[in-house]
């Protein structure tokens, strides 16, 4: 009986001690957190169109991999679902409400992507997709705002007859394309893989590593400068002949162009 009592007493003492340390620990943590608050920071990704070392311009002639002279009149594309990769390999996922961008060759501002409220820290890269994810492609209209609004932001990048967005829209001319088509090429590449029945999925994942850690914090706003080469859509893995297929929209051939442009965005430098 006495022994039992002693045991209970011991347990009580231990429990009390534990609860005190637990409280203390909590306090400790609290005290530890407050002195060094890490304010979130901002960053920018600059997507500049370039052909090699030269700036890219609409309505200028460029020779593609197949040796054809092509002139773009339009080069628009979506990038979305950004994730910044931390030093330790984990990542910060940009919230859905601010992760969709429509980049247009004729709109310099659209080529600067702004990110706010990024947790302070060191980052070694960024991941995103070229295109719009399937969930958003099938979302109710009221959840499609800004660049995803079919009538305004996404004008010309939305198919009215087939669910989903045009991920990359490239139009222009090539002298080798027949006069009956006014020498025009039109590539409207979309398709997110289908909702109930699977179809072609042209969403392309991109991962760009900076080759160094960049610091993002409230007092430091790095600019991640990338080069985008529109001619990539005509090469690797498939050297593409615009004369043979001047118009591609929602068709199996769209995969060839999408596979080609998957590597059109390359990281260049930080400033």
């Amino acid at each position: 009986m006495k022994k039992e009592f002693k045991n209970i007493f011991q347990i009580l003492v231990i429990a009390l001690a534990l609860s005190i340390t637990a409280c203390k620990k909590k306090d400790d943590n609290h005290n530890h957190d407050t002195p060094t608050p890490q304010q979130p920071g901002e960053t920018e990704i600059h997507l500049e169109n370039r052909i090699g070392n030269l700036k890219f311009y609409l309505n200028e002639s460029y020779v593609n991999e197949n040796g054809d002279s092509v002139k773009f009149t339009m080069f628009n594309y979506y990038v979305s679902n950004f994730e910044f990769i931390k030093e330790d390999g984990s990542s910060y996922v940009v919230p859905k409400d601010s992760c969709y961008f429509l980049v247009k060759a004729n709109d310099m501002e659209s080529q600067e992507l702004h990110f706010k409220n990024i947790p302070a820290g060191k980052y070694k890269g960024v991941r995103f997709i070229i295109g719009v994810d399937s969930l958003k492609s099938a979302a109710p209209l009221e959840q499609r705002t800004g660049v995803l609004d079919p009538a305004t932001g996404a004008q010309g990048m939305y198919w009215s007859w087939n669910t989903g967005y045009i991920f990359v829209k490239a139009e222009g001319t090539c002298p080798g394309i027949p006069d009956s088509l006014q020498n025009k090429f039109k590539y409207h590449i979309g398709l997110f893989g289908g909702y109930s029945t699977p179809t072609i999925n042209n969403i392309k994942k991109v991962e760009l590593l900076f080759g160094q850690n960049i610091e993002i914090k409230s007092t430091k706003k790095p600019n991640i400068h990338c080069y985008v080469n529109p001619l990539e859509m005509f090469k690797t893995p498939t050297t593409f002949d615009v004369k043979a297929q001047p118009v591609i929209m929602a068709s199996p051939a769209s995969k060839t162009i999408a596979d080609n442009y998957a590597d059109m965005i390359k990281f260049d430098h930080i400033h």
Partner: peptide, 25 residues
């Protein structure tokens, strides 16, 4: 079955050049 959302179906008829041929804007 090209359109998944009820409220997006009308865009098809409104913008089709052989139906209503008008832009949303």
């Amino acid at each position: 079955g090209g359109i998944l959302n009820l409220e997006l179906v009308a865009i098809n008829a409104i913008t089709s050049p052989v139906e209503m041929d008008e832009s949303l804007l």
